[in-house]
Design a binder for these strands. Structure first.
Lengths: 347, 347
DNA sequence: CCGTGTTGTTCCAACGTTGTAACCGTCGTG
DNA sequence: CACGACGGTTACAACGTTGGAACAACACGG
């Protein structure tokens, strides 16, 4: 590993180590003549600054991490896309870590490797609670994506989120406006994530506003928001006794919706003829599914921009800043799975 | 950022810095009494070793990176999954980087940040050529995923790949065995990736073996293997003059196939009644699509295991090792999009 | 001709860690 | 009882970098 160091460059250029350091950092107080000479040497030797040493000395590495529960969920993969682009515009490099919904993994980046290697972390928490994060947040730049946990709890870090209650209300209202009266929900998890609870709240609000009753039998409990759970939940809803089969389902994620669509396909039912399906995430997979999936599309570019901007501010400032909570916009994309109108996708 | 250091722990435990270091590294030559005392101090102060300093001193960080072109492609997201699991079993932490198919990005991890921060890189190259990598590979542990570039070129790093020619031949033979005679291909890119060229070769071989002619009009050129390109290519194939519409298409990736299915859906054609569709990747998206997608399923667990094992060996050894090329198994998963048999997915 | 400032460069120390070598007991053995 | 061996601990230096202070060279105004 005979890496080229400042010392090698300095010898080659006939100047001191510090001068080379000044050149590569674009510090002032270097004459043009020396600068040119040093840069030549840098080029010839292929010098690359050692990030570990730099980080050790300055406390800055230019690296931030994005930690998400699961990369195979398109929502998170697409989010990673946006965050990487946004961060590189600000001179940060993004490393992505998959936490697999493990609380220890979620904390690890902010405490272990992270704190000594990274300038900050954007975390999409699944299991970890504000209490776990409290001791960390003051010392290490951290931005959380998604819901604050249940109302009463303290805000312990910057948050970027969408208005989940409103989003769920809009999509449910859309289903009701189509004349559906037995609207089910897939993704309820009352003990679980704040996201799920908020979407349930919005769902119920919209039902009441439409003059419909909330029927708990049509609300399917689910652990993770993935395809197999959507499939299983829809199968269950289709086998309810007493002819209470739903004529529409609001799935709390696109993956649940994809699973639900699969269950309907297997049962030989028509979407949206027999059952309308809607999701949340605005994933490309939903757009291309058959039929294409009506979904709430969070503005991921905004989410990423807000998160990176919060993080950059926090990294840049020495003093503790007050925690911010920022809400990103979303929109409802109505597609075939609810209105049945066949539209060609734009090329 | 008042991080706890070895010094703090040493003072607390009443021993020297070096002894603490010995304890946390599980080095021998520490009495049980001191070990206990030190570990108590570590726990009370919440000491975490500084990865930058450790890396600077030892040249090891325990971090490896996986660089893939695009995380929104399920194949890569799922691969990241497997690599992370495999690596954590060996005590490595995996950071994932998206290169967006940019050659400079692809090299960056292996040259810039990477070389000074990471112990090694697993790279799934899209643009970068062996020649670009040659100067790097000797000095920095690097494993490439996917094809070697065109025949003649030298092997410059470890490779893990599947037998693309065989895979393409199998899936094409399957289509032929269903009695299809006008079998198209989507994903041809003759200037482009070795992967594409190899799949075309296998495709042509299978046609000849089945007694069919290769019709270039049914071979759709495509840049990236994504959904929009699959959609566009299928639309083109459906509008060929002279009634040469294909009765089956082999798509060189699942995403192309999903796009193709969408085009067929929009055209009101039945899958597989009018046109059978098959892909490569074995993605969950294909499994859940309607109809479920016949696909070549590379054994990603094996790929990940081989890649991590190669990399670990290379990291562990000081001397340059000969470059290895390892082939991972694959299998053909026949599903509704070719045989039309409706099977419920297992829960 | 001497201070004073400006500009470019060098020297030194430090970031937190670990490898090497040296040190100090204590024990077993001749 | 002296000696070596060995277990346990410590001091020191170094990894590559950068902030700060020190320093040299030079121009300028008094």
């Amino acid at each position: 590993m005979g890496a080229v160091t400042l010392k090698d460059v300095a010898e080659r250029a006939g100047v001191s180590i510090k001068t080379v350091s000044n050149v590569v950092r674009n510090a002032p107080r270097v004459s043009d003549a020396t600068r040119v000479r040093v840069l030549e040497a840098v080029g010839e030797l292929g010098y690359r600054p050692n990030a570990s040493a730099r980080r050790l000395r300055t406390g800055r590495s230019g690296l931030i991490a994005l930690a998400v529960p699961d990369l195979t969920t398109p929502y998170f993969a697409e989010l990673a896309h946006h965050v990487a682009r946004e961060a590189s515009g600000r001179g940060f490099t993004v490393l992505i870590e998959e936490t697999r919904g493990d609380a220890r993994e979620e904390l690890r980046l902010a405490t272990g490797v992270g704190a000594s290697l990274l300038d900050g972390v954007i975390l999409s928490p699944l299991r970890v609670s504000p209490a776990d994060l409290a001791p960390v947040a003051d010392e290490f730049p951290l931005v959380l994506l998604g819901e604050r946990s249940y109302g009463g709890e303290q805000v312990v870090a910057d948050h970027v989120l969408i208005d989940n209650v409103a989003a769920a209300r809009e999509v449910t209202a859309h289903l009701a406006s189509l004349g559906r009266t037995r609207i089910g929900a897939i993704g309820v998890d009352e003990q679980g994530s704040a996201t799920s609870r908020q979407r349930l709240t919005g769902f119920q609000q919209a039902l009441y506003e439409a003059g419909l009753r909330y029927d708990p039998r049509l609300a399917a409990q689910v652990g993770e928001f993935d395809r197999p759970n959507g499939l299983a939940a829809m199968r269950t809803l289709l086998q309810l006794p007493g002819g209470v089969r739903p004529d529409a389902v609001f799935c709390f994620s696109d993956m649940l919706a994809v699973g639900a669509q699969r269950a309907l396909h297997e049962a030989g039912l028509d979407i949206p003829g027999d059952v309308a399906v809607a999701g949340v995430d605005g994933s490309a997979e939903g757009l291309y599914s058959t039929p294409s999936l009506t979904s709430v599309v969070p503005d991921q570019a905004s989410i990423a921009a807000m998160a990176v901007s919060c993080l950059a501010t926090r990294i840049g400032s020495e003093d503790p800043l007050p925690y911010e909570v920022r809400t990103a916009p979303h929109r409802l994309a109505v597609r075939e799975s609810t209105d049945g109108v066949r539209r060609p996708l734009p090329s």
